[in-house]
Design a protein around this nucleic acid. Sequence first.
RNA 1: GGGCGGAUAGCUCAGCGGAAGAGCAUCGGCCUUACAAGCCGGGGGUCGCAGGUUCGAACCCUGCUCCGCCCACCA
Length: 918
Amino acid sequence: MTQLPKAYDPREVEPKWYRIWLEHDYFRADAADSKTPYSISIPPPNVTGSLHIGHALGSTIQDILIRWRRMRAANALWVPGTDHAGISTQIIVERVIQRDEGKSRHDLGREEFVRRVRAWKERYGHRISEQEKALGFSLDWSRDRFTMDEGYSRAVRECFVRLHEEGLIYKARRLINWCASCQTALSDLEVRVTDEPGTLWSIAYPVEGSDEKLVLATTRPETMLGDTAVAVHPEDERYRHLIGRHALLPLTDRKIPIIADAILVDREFGTGVVKVTPGHDFHDFETGLRHDLPQISILDLDGRVIAPAPEKYRGLDVAAARRAVLADLAAAGLLVGEKAHVIPLGRCTRSNTVVEPLLSVQWFCKMGGLAEPAVAAVEDGRIKLIPEGWTKTYMHWMKNIQDWCISRQLWWGHRIPAWTNRRTGELVVARDPPTGDEWEQDPDVLDTWFSSWMWPFATLGWPEKTRDLATFYPTNVLVTGFDIIFFWVARMIMAGLHFMKKIPFRTVYLTPLIVDENGDKMSKSKGNGIDPLDVVHGATQDDLVARAREQGAPEAAVEFIAKSFPEGIPAAGADALRFTMAALSGQGRTMRLSIARIEGYRHFANKIWNAARFALMNLEGFEPDRFADTLREGKPGLSLPDRWILARLQQTVKDVDDALEAFRFHDAAHALYRFFWSELCDWYIELAKPALYEPSPEAAARRRVTQGTLAHTLETALRLLHPFMPFITEEIWQQLPKPSVAPSSVMITAFPGTEERFFDAEAERQMGLVIDVSVAVRAIRAEYRVPPSETVELTIRADGERRGILAGLAGMVERATRAKVTMVPALAATKNAAKAVVAGDVELVVPLAGLIDVAAEKARLDKEVRKADREGETLTRKLGNAAFVERAPAEVVERERGRLEEVTARAARLRSALAALE
RNA sequence: GGGCGGAUAGCUCAGCGGAAGAGCAUCGGCCUUACAAGCCGGGGGUCGCAGGUUCGAACCCUGCUCCGCCCACCA
């Protein structure tokens, strides 16, 4: 038999098996296979980034599903890939070039810059797949996709052109969110609104041809230079007479109309008057449309004041312009109030720059019509969101969806397939460039999400009618974070239904957000993030600090890292990390992760390892084929522990399968953990030892059956565990003696199915009795500090059936408690003994001459009596309640009666034991 | 302003209508020939607060208090 090392070391085992799995092409799916397809497309990570622990969570869950289904004979396909991630990639590369060469992207020029980003992608793109391999993910690498590879780019153009042909994509001058630092338009979703302290100024606008002044409040006085109206409420008596007249816009020579607009004014600050700046405020933009007002832009793309604002302000940035305007208003006596005010301020989610609403010509996609079928698909249950609570969030957003600004003023991305004729100004949207020199392509690129919303079908070959598409679309599950429900999930549903006429996936499983031990979101700038590879391979404190510095983390983050990991991170292996992910996945919306937790499951891996070591050391002479036949014939020669562990195993198979079916990964993980550790290791293996160690020829049959049960149980458990812990299960499984028909890898074996015939209530009842008795005796031993090496006398008094059962199982109790058991029909009174009562009226007596402190023993028994009495009282009261007996289900009443009987018997036995001490 | 989560043992969380649970931490005893990354045993909770429904509530309903997230002309 093979000798395994004493402690499990994943470092060599894991890469070895991944290599072998790849060599055998086990991850590859065949679209022509007749098995039921089961497919998942991985949410593509940013190609220039590296996986963080959140990816590890989502992908572990996907791999569990894929491996489980593959073992359940599905044609399982998991599509890998990466995303070009427009803005964030461009920013990263720009920053690096600036740092290393002191050049901006404009210094390099568009073509060269894009070439550089591609080179960057080539250099770092492998990092993600290396991480995914280290974590054991069974992705079909032959189908690896990138959102800017050639085929995908074609799909994006096709999508754009079709939507344009259908009139769903249009170009318009609109107010959009502009980030002056990224120099691009942003969608609403890329703007984060926060409440920030600001000031509310009151300004007086003189009324033309009158001494009256209109006082209005604003948090953005500089935008007054772009005002094109003043609005009052139509019902407001104070101003009704001014409607239709004009106000003299201070600091300018313009006069602007006084209009009535209930919608706008209702929302304002209570003065009853509102300035209207359609070029710089979303509400005002709408108001401007309602009243046909001119739209004036007084800021350029860098956020500097431009004409038609008066000459003296031009060139100032927003802050400077604000100071100048306020000073001039004050000088003119028109600044009449100022107070602190909290204002909601939009900031760019990438650069944190304050976002400026700017008038700009952009491409938009009409969403209303696309959203309708996507709402219906979720409403009628064709697509299910898990946890269900997210459905409402999805619905709300979808039912109020706005048109989507899809153009971005970036260089990295899918360039918009639209060309303008330099001579005629004609605009052409087409799959391919028009011929001739006079055509100039739109300089803008598409929002990244405009390519990723096609992910589930574009990765399978769309727009071609591929075999993959026919077989694997729709995919079965989407596993992703809830933070991108709007960005991505909702849009994929819309795109899938629009282009494929079919939902893109049946189930959306939304993972929790991983936060640190303090509940803070993990981020590079804080330094509280955990790199999955550090968990897998381990890292010293110095490693962690050095790498953080190298990646340009702020000094505060470096300090945080040094403080958080004084001992570094111990190598836990991929399996332990994966199991942790599964076990913690049920934690609502956030999931706190700490190294200590992962270590707990590393211990579990070691436990599995050692159980296997034990088995392999004791399976000599075992013949798997023969035992397989034996099991098929029934359960001949199986001992109680054999029958019991096989029953528990079946229960676990059922629990795990049910849990996976219901996407309850934590339930599955806990069922496995409990079974393996608390049942297989703590009880079965311990009770199996005598049979395994017994060398005599007479015991050979017994030994063979025990070996068989142990091997069978372990092998089945490994298959159950495989989706969670693929490496260690493979390593052990390969070494276990198996029936000759077993395939070449555990990953292509059949996932265990529930076999009803192994359920065994009687075995569970009997083992329950052994366990109860053993636990009680161990407690006595511990209480009186009996040295573990010392054998104690144990007298058991039980009646009827229990007497028979326990007499038969005395050997097991002896083994579990290091006792010598004597069964008696009646107890003799003794003061030099500790007593306990279990299972109603089974009495246990452990004589401990010289060790018993009568007072202490009395106190111990008294405590037990009181506990039993309390329980008895509750039950008596409950059963004395006529309403309960009448209305509660009969089986509940029956159970409570049984409990009362049990507790009453126990109390009586304990009392007499107590009396014997008097 | 609105919506959605959460509040259960020292910590992190399961349980979501019929006996309060797990892991970690803690305390005590053990190097017992698979495993000290281990084994055995113990302590620890008016299940956020107040009402209600029910024979029965940690669980369902109503209100309240804290904490977190999301949306914000649309909630």
